[in-house]
Design a protein around this nucleic acid. Structure first.
Lengths: 337, 337
DNA sequence: TTGTAAGCGTTATCAC
DNA sequence: GTGATAACGCTTACAA
């Protein structure tokens, strides 16, 4: 069987390959009649231009890169699922690489993506200004992340305010001793920091117990052991908190497990509230209250942002979708005293 | 700055581009001295051959396709993570599409993958013989799945025997009334069926209560509502089972939630055992006992199988890694009566 | 062992 | 509006 390429289509349509190319790309006007003829043959023979040839001839790659953290996190997995979905919708394919937090390793991954002909890549790791500058200097590939301005996610502000409001909500229920578990990364102003800021702001504003020992800090990886050692410090038997905010659902589930093993009841003895809104949060016992992120919306913004980096065309998202919802479930109740 | 392509490297190495190509691909012997010279210049200028040009010139695509089910399932997510990792290691990129179970939709996805120049694709959906035949007839792209012989996963047999053994274990603990929740797909002999077969075999062999009403069946999607309606039928208050096997961790977690809401205690009133070994199983309360699948091993086999389909080279996996481990945790205990 | 040159399937720049 | 044709960066006969 003959190969169905642009030459074949041209022959069948009785025109030149240049014309076929023009029809495909709408790059130059073609008479209506001829255009119809070409489209019909393309349909008839189910022709698809070779993306490799297109690329060689100077077109962009239609491939987006993604750097995911090696630590398997529900929220990320979900986010990527949507990212992939939107990318497909826009006619793009996604190439993922998993990677540890070291900068060297990220550079290695970037190099691999660049080899694949990828022009724009999204990193789930935030990047410091120096890192971004280094990449800009040494790579052709453009890198962006959650906090890149092109994404228009307002993520820092949204994180801070939603946590602030959630803690206020707990206070309204009557909680006075509210603990918090946070995660710190090396970036100066990250959305993870913002969660803590929102928490602290609420604590200090509403005149709650400001007990330093009720605030725990994780660093990067959230191994079971480190989670437990943090939570142990918060739960001093003399005066445990009556409510606990946790920066992520995943960690919160771990924490709830520990709390219940110690014999405390949730929410009778202690309420737990966390952040992310992963599907599992609603399935564990007791079901976990959480601030759910607009994952789908975020994915859309990210893809639009990446495409902007790719072709310079702005595709604004409706800001209305960017809502962080406080979902109160069984893990939150009134304080018992 | 000059473009660093094969011509550039050839010039700097003082040889022809053919030689450079031969060094890159080890396709024909090149004298040691010249080879070294070429490799050095490649290193020096950090040259990477354009995969697009390579492809156009007849090489395979170095891209693998993956069809994932639209239903977000932990095990799948984990599996894909490893698939991606191994694919990368072998120098391949992965393109994923999510898809519903309809055949038409799968065909659509296959077409998209084919357009991207992908030659081999793995489907998380099983395919009936007719479907496979249809695809073979109408597509260039090769499709495989969990039960394809190239994968050498023995998955049906392994599923059956591991469930059989797990149920035997429950019986040894003294459980006489063991319920089961299964999932049925349209494929005649699927590994999901095998789980049920293993269960039934154990039940009938060890002379346990053979109460039909203690066996529930899900169909395809595992929405919360359908899970609950199945579990409700199993738990008739008169004589509930003392142990329950569930075909997947994800559903088991949902089921445990329901059971505890009804006021039963796990494992005192009822033991729960399931299948998959997702990370969350160990994190919920009570921690879920499960038959953990060798995900990493499976991913390796799958990639090797796909590469075999791609280039005909066999890359056998050590069969030893193919172990299904019964992990007993807090959700399983002795029957109380 | 090495070099020359003909493809691979497009796009884009010219002419007409 | 349309058709030649060079160019994209590589692989691979074929020739030397």
């Amino acid at each position: 069987m003959e190969n169905i390429d642009i030459k074949f289509i041209a022959k069948k349509s009785e025109c030149s390959i240049a014309t076929v190319s023009r029809v495909i790309n709408r790059s130059k006007p073609v008479s209506e009649e001829l255009q119809k003829r070409v489209i019909d043959t393309i349909r008839k023979y189910n022709y698809n231009p070779s993306i490799y040839a297109q690329n060689l001839a100077g077109k962009k790659s239609r491939l987006l890169g993604f750097i995911m953290t090696n630590y398997i996190n529900q929220y990320q997995l979900l986010l990527f699922r949507y990212l992939n979905e939107f990318a497909c919708k826009m006619g793009y394919g996604c190439i993922i690489r998993y990677c540890n937090s070291g900068f060297e390793e990220k550079l290695e991954v970037l190099r691999e993506l660049e080899i694949r002909g990828i022009e724009v890549c999204f990193s789930l790791f935030l990047l410091s200004q120096e890192e971004e500058a280094y990449i800009k200097e040494h790579f052709r590939i453009k890198v962006c992340h959650m906090q890149s301005p092109e994404m228009r996610l307002n993520i820092i502000e949204k994180n801070e305010s939603s946590v602030y409001e959630a803690v206020c909500y707990l206070a309204q229920l009557g909680h006075k001793r509210i603990g918090g578990i946070f995660c710190i990364d090396e970036i100066d102003d990250s959305f993870l920091m913002a969660r803590k800021r929102g928490f602290l702001k609420a604590i200090s504003q509403i005149n709650l117990d400001q007990d330093e020992s009720m605030i725990g800090q994780l660093h990067g990886e959230c191994e079971k052991d480190s989670v437990i050692s943090v939570i142990e410090k918060i739960f001093v038997p003399q005066k445990p908190p009556t409510a606990l905010f946790c920066y992520s659902d995943e960690v919160a589930i771990e924490v709830m497990s520990w709390i219940m093993k110690q014999g405390y009841r949730i929410p009778e003895d202690i309420s737990v509230l966390s952040f992310d809104g992963i599907p599992f949060a609603g399935r564990v016992t007791p079901s976990l209250s959480t601030i759910s992120q607009p994952v789908e919306y975020q994915a859309k913004c990210i893809i639009n942002g990446m495409l902007y980096l790719q072709d310079g065309i702005e595709r604004p998202c409706d800001e209305k979708g960017n809502e962080y919802l406080l979902q109160i479930r069984d893990s939150v109740g009134l304080p018992s005293h």
